[in-house]
Design a protein around this nucleic acid. Structure first.
Lengths: 192, 192
DNA sequence: ACGAATCCATACGGGTGAGTATGGGGCGCG
DNA sequence: CGCGCCCCATACTCACCCGTATGGATTCGT
């Protein structure tokens, strides 16, 4: 430990700033995304930041774009590999339930829905995911109107769960309670 | 129109500030709760505010307390009058669905779950409402474990719906689509 | 090796919003 | 009538944070 407590050093790239921004958003919310605080975190000063980005909002936009692109590629990409449509929904539920880490940014963005830059991103992501659920429910045998409503209900339950248990940390479910809840959700929402 | 465009005048009381604060929270979120902005809204200056309240946080706390107390008295009080437990849940769903106005503060508070003063309030409110749903589901015939999980699922769906359709304004449901969604929710979540 | 491009530090200006100090005006009450 | 208390205006200070200006340091191309 010859220099700082943050072992990062040497030159930075725009990607470094964007990833650090996403980390900051996940930890302390969009409102805490300040350039001087980020610079401290990275062991540099504002002088560095304003070389890579035109403004604070430009960084936020870049970070959101990166997050959205990553989310589409990772979350939905894996699921579409599951061939059997009947197994797709339960498997989706179980996988999503056990990857809590990637949802931290999503939960933080849910709390920043007043910010103009956040709204269109969340609108696109929510729309795509709901449509994905809708086709999955149709493949599972629901008629179109029911599939649409069930998709909306499912995604609302997902978002609400994030808010209540993740952000609020409300009932602090242990592992068994959590699994029990997920299986109950599968039994209730997915048609037999 | 001899004076201001805001027809409020004469001396103010602490209650006036708290109600104006809740209005501001509902309209522009907790972050927009600034004392100078509120003072402008009420047609006075900061000098007035700091006579009634010690700080900005004191106002926020008072407003939250008022909202929590009002919510318990109004929302849950009406529902408990419904005698038949079988009719209680569908009736609850339909009533809650058609009173969107009282939910605006709740939706705004959902976006302020990083604020230390907001978290305990939301934790208490969510806990009470989930427990209310749990007993209602038990009265409707579910076994205890299922009643608990179904209550959590229902409340999560409620919270997520607020976030997606209220705050985000996503699919912009019209009246028929909205009713269709509510009835689908009743058919899916409430045991026959 | 040496100039040029890249990356960063230092220092400053400006805007915003919380909190304080202090005095003045309205209103009840004797 | 005039005295005192309640309510509010004015005018500050202070802290924070965005953005700019400019020069220094490091690295890369050739």
């Amino acid at each position: 430990m010859d220099s700082n407590h943050k072992p990062e050093r040497t030159r930075l790239t725009a990607e470094n700033w964007e990833l650090a921004a996403l980390q900051m958003i996940a930890d302390h919310g969009v409102g805490a995304l300040a350039v001087e605080a980020l610079a401290r975190e990275l062991g540099v000063t504002k002088g560095s930041f304003y070389w890579h980005f035109r403004s604070r909002e430009a960084l936020l936009q870049a970070a959101l774009d990166r997050w959205e692109e990553y989310g589409e590629r990772e979350v939905l990409g894996q699921i579409e590999k599951i061939a059997d449509p009947r197994q797709r929904l339960p498997e989706l539920f179980r996988r999503v339930a056990h990857e809590l880490q990637p949802h931290r940014v999503y939960a933080a963005l849910l709390k920043a829905l007043d910010h103009p830059l956040v709204v269109p991103v969340m609108a696109r992501v929510s729309k795509r995911r709901t449509e994905f659920l809708e086709t999955a429910y149709r493949e599972a045998g629901l008629v179109p109107r029911e599939a649409l409503n069930r998709a909306r209900l499912t995604y609302a339950a997902y978002v609400g769960f994030l808010q209540l248990n993740f952000t609020l940390g409300l009932p602090r479910l242990n592992h068994d309670e959590f699994d029990s809840y997920i299986e109950h959700m599968i039994a209730t929402l997915i048609p037999a």
